[in-house]
Design a protein around this nucleic acid. Structure first.
Lengths: 228, 228
DNA sequence: GCAATGCTTCGACACGGATCGAACCATGGA
DNA sequence: TCCATGGTTCGATCCGTGTCGAAGCATTGC
């Protein structure tokens, strides 16, 4: 059984605790510098440099040098999706961190999954879109498509569908939520919704964390939009 | 960023080449003995025993002792799905096995993904079901549901939907195909279709491999059913 | 030009874990 | 009862690699 892609290379990259911490930190979607990632992972700068080099060679990260800083991000949404999927398996098998802090409930409520929203709130938004007939099974890469009604709805929120559709990225994708074990909306539209809600001040991402807070106004507006 | 499930444990389990071979071998869906897995992975029995123990403790495998044999299988469909997802990422990042043998095209054409069909043929079947309006986006765990028309269609093929629906397992799930980068049908229905086609002699799984061969009769019948 | 900061490379060290040989249980058959 | 086969446990070995200190570049700011 030596057929198929080499799963061990990716597994080994995720398998080191320090590298796993780095990847989880980057799941926040933010671009972080090498030293930030080092402190995040609890290692020195030298060690982090070695890890980051390996993650780059493995194709999981991209870097952008800016001045004397070097910013790292996940190589793309598909990397984030796989990380969430592995997290889901880990959660199911009881591989929780030894210290599950008080931040855990907040993570389950609403968090960032690389570039879109995840957690309980994201799942409820997905359900709302589905129940109102805004989503349809598609033969496209994403597996999901917007119906005409759905297109009208998101346009009414102020999402520019034309530019989104022009991108090569699939508009809608289903991403498996590790805490809810159900789907939430990823893809170009998922990312656009997150930026839309953040720009409006409805959502605010906690610094150096994946946790997302909902403002009182956001609470009201989202309830109006999605009946959640 | 010490929040969330422990991704490193799972990663480390997949990260060893011998263990990766074992997991890939079990993606064929068959239950294999410890010695079979040892030869498959190219290691001795003692080493395999140690690896199998770790995979068991990690919750990725289940074992069933039968006589003096010990049969191992993947712990469930969700494990297979994650393995396929990681394979997809590995393929995208160019992490192919050094020796991609002549069997590779056959793998891409049709193969088993733990308990359902994957590869080009599976993707085309999924497309056919979708185009004819047999699938709908759902709020259930799987994210996909059968429409009434779809239920009529699969019943007409001889699938017993009542017993399938009675199971706690989601009826339909979308599983990302590593070779096609598109969805194919997993879940209880996906598994039922595979057994149905195999029992009819339309499909035949190659021994000790994930490759699936299509009989001439199967070719004709599947074309009739799905216009593929 | 000089110092400070961010990051990488080099070298050395130490720990973990993958591996196999040999001995040790368990089951099934003669 | 004895042997053969499938699996596990134990012990020893050895390679890989994660780790950090120190030195070396690169870039920015004074």
């Amino acid at each position: 059984m030596k057929d198929g892609p080499d799963i061990a290379r990716i597994g080994a990259l995720m398998g080191d605790p320090a590298r796993a911490n780095i990847l989880c930190a980057l799941l926040s979607g933010k671009a972080l510098t090498a030293t930030e990632l080092a402190t995040e992972a609890g290692i020195t700068g030298q060690t982090a440099s070695s890890h980051l080099k390996k993650l780059m060679e493995g194709g999981l990260l991209t870097q952008a040098k800016q001045g004397r800083h070097r910013y790292f991000t996940l190589a793309g949404p598909e990397v984030g999706a796989v990380l969430e999927a592995v997290m889901g398996l880990a959660a199911r098998k009881g591989h929780l961190r030894t210290r599950t802090g008080p931040r855990d409930p907040q993570m389950r409520a609403a968090r960032v999954c690389y570039d879109h929203l995840a957690g309980d709130m994201a799942v409820r938004i997905f359900d709302s879109l589905q129940k109102r007939g805004f989503l349809a099974v598609s033969t496209d890469k994403g597996g999901i498509a917007l119906t005409d009604d759905g297109a009208g709805f998101v346009s009414s929120i102020g999402i520019d569908l034309d530019t989104l559709s022009a991108s090569r990225r699939p508009l809608c994708r289903a991403c498996l939520d590790w805490s809810e074990r159900r789907n939430h909306l990823a893809g170009g539209l998922g990312a656009a919704l997150l930026t839309r809600f953040t720009d409006s001040g409805w959502l605010r991402q906690e610094p150096s964390s994946r946790i997302v807070h909902v403002s009182p106004k956001g609470e009201a507006e989202l309830k109006k939009l999605f009946q959640v």
